[in-house]
Design a binder for these strands. Sequence first.
DNA 1: ACAACTTTGTTTATCCAATAGACAAACAAA
DNA 2: TTTGTTTGTCTATTGGATAAACAAAGTTGT
Lengths: 387, 387
Amino acid sequence: MKTTTGDQALIKRMNTAIVLEAILQAEPLSRAKISEITGLNKATVSSLVQDLIDNQLVREIGTGVSSGGRKPVMLEFIATAGYAVGVDIGVNYLRGVLTDLRGAIIAEKKLPLQAPDADEVFNVLRPFIQTLMEKAPQSPFGIVGIGVGVPGLVDRAGSVLFAPNMGWRDVPLKEALSRTFGIPVMVDNEANVGALGERMFGIGRGISNMVYVSVGIGIGTGLILHRTLYKGASGFSGELGHLSVEAHGRPCRCGNRGCWELYASEQALLEQAEAAGYPRDLDELLEAAEAGDEQVLAMLRGIGEYLGVGISNIVNVFNPDAVVIGNRMSRAQPWLEEAVTQTVEQRALGFHLRGVHLLYAELGDRSAVMGAAELAIAAFFERLKSA
Amino acid sequence: MKTTTGDQALIKRMNTAIVLEAILQAEPLSRAKISEITGLNKATVSSLVQDLIDNQLVREIGTGVSSGGRKPVMLEFIATAGYAVGVDIGVNYLRGVLTDLRGAIIAEKKLPLQAPDADEVFNVLRPFIQTLMEKAPQSPFGIVGIGVGVPGLVDRAGSVLFAPNMGWRDVPLKEALSRTFGIPVMVDNEANVGALGERMFGIGRGISNMVYVSVGIGIGTGLILHRTLYKGASGFSGELGHLSVEAHGRPCRCGNRGCWELYASEQALLEQAEAAGYPRDLDELLEAAEAGDEQVLAMLRGIGEYLGVGISNIVNVFNPDAVVIGNRMSRAQPWLEEAVTQTVEQRALGFHLRGVHLLYAELGDRSAVMGAAELAIAAFFERLKSA
DNA sequence: ACAACTTTGTTTATCCAATAGACAAACAAA
DNA sequence: TTTGTTTGTCTATTGGATAAACAAAGTTGT
């Protein structure tokens, strides 16, 4: 491992990144304003901006209003300098978007999946992505990358180590896609990309430290700490769904006992419902709740309470600014919210003191695709910085 | 907040830090070797080393062995260029060390504490620190700082927000000490400094991601992620002792239910012992265990199992390279170890796969003081980098 | 309408850290 | 001795950032 030493090229890359960042955050912006914001000299800014313009990342969009002197030339980021593909692989569906570099959706596609067999999925996935890519207009950078979210454990190399609900084991997804398309591919866990999606384009915009709780069949979590996705020491973390909340509770297929997801997931609800003679179907249960079925409401409150138990633990551990509940169960918000909030308020240490916000996903079933696209976009910017 | 822009001074600071780091990690080292290791040009290294020598941080210690050419001039870090004070404030004791910049103990002091009243402690603390400081030989940088570990919640400003066992609330410890001594003061939680201590000087040397579990009256935790102490979003984290492991367990004074520390701390053991007619004293219980008292051994196994439950949760969340069990209960290692290991192996997801190590503190009751000193030393190096 | 002041963005000369390459000193081995 | 190697310094060059001067393009007060 070579230590990154400092030289002048590094300075230039750093400062270019700073300038670009400034424009992204508050466009349109003049050179003078950038100089003021960043503390860089006017001449430096001029020079760096020129480079950005030469690289087709920024353009002048005419003059702005003067405040008693020469009118400023306003600059903006060229969001259409390139495009990104985001894909959300579900157990029984495939969802994809083509976005520009600012995350605006250019094209969208959805497909039901039959057998989630790895080979089969790949055969469907390839033309699926291809079609999206073809929707992209001509642009300087073209398709900058493909981001993929998968409901399973993903390692640093982008291989799906284990996806129980898909029946996958050791599927080198990233490698396969890279080879097929010849452009950068990022693969990550569904909860992680969901977190990214809500953080960049949803309810979590601008929040520095956020925990995304993906409540579906199981419970997955995506941690955003200091504005970046946090991965554990060995790359795959976020297994908060398997935090034990009942030390001597039911055994879980993970080997542990009393895992949180056994008590607070969609599956937990469906099992309870079935035992009580209800259909094993979330939609029908939510309809019953809507109609005021007291038994269903009680079940939902129970789920909400257990959700709160786990969220309290998360709050105590990570001290996030916000917790976002997403994925399928977020649709039950009206009937969960009270129980969740109450439980967390009771249990989380100094909850009010910290000002943690309990939020619900804003992008609905698009959290993950959008996050997947963001994965590709972020990687593109990262490459810009280091070259 | 001003963005740190890049200029030549920044480069120089970065590269100087790289050179110093290289020397610290593998002294003694020649200029040529440093150039080779860091990738910096020989001339650059020469110049930077000269600066370090001028600043009394590095010195030449004669020539080394040649491998067929001019003999290299070996360089070493001047550990005695300054000294640091570390203090561990306990409920009924005060412990302090004076170390050089490499953490070698120059002087040590211990004092029993009567009433842990904040004012009183401060009155004892002042001369206590003063005495340690006077033991320091003359040096270019003098006493570079004072690090303090406290059994309580500490905010970013170094105020002790809440220390239940001391009966403290909102004690601006850092400010008070800063004013008294006029040198940099760092205050942090006991578990955090303990983690630092073991990481730098104990069993955790060189480990990048480590969780230190301080098992005393309560349970505190210090997280070291990516080689640095991790603090939650709002500065104080590490409340893993209050992770709920029994969702409907006993209410805890923190407001939550079934907190881990209710089942796995020294206090938990003492309560069980008392109920069974044993003396409420750890030493006597350990003696009984030593003598093979089956009832005591069973209690210790129970504690060990619960320790394992919590540690499994930690492993699942943070994926650390190692978990270190420290503080008073680490003395019970022989009777805890089996139960802990077994439980974690059963419960932590893919425990073996990850290669997590279960370790026990090496510095004994010195983990915290040494970490406190390290806090001051690290801050000194940090200041060097940014000025 | 005009002078005076402002703001914007470029140009110029200067500074400074890193670097390659030349070089001298110091040494081992043949 | 001779030859080749290693170490560390010296010199000229490169390339970014910067301050200061400046031109261009405004606004405002009288």
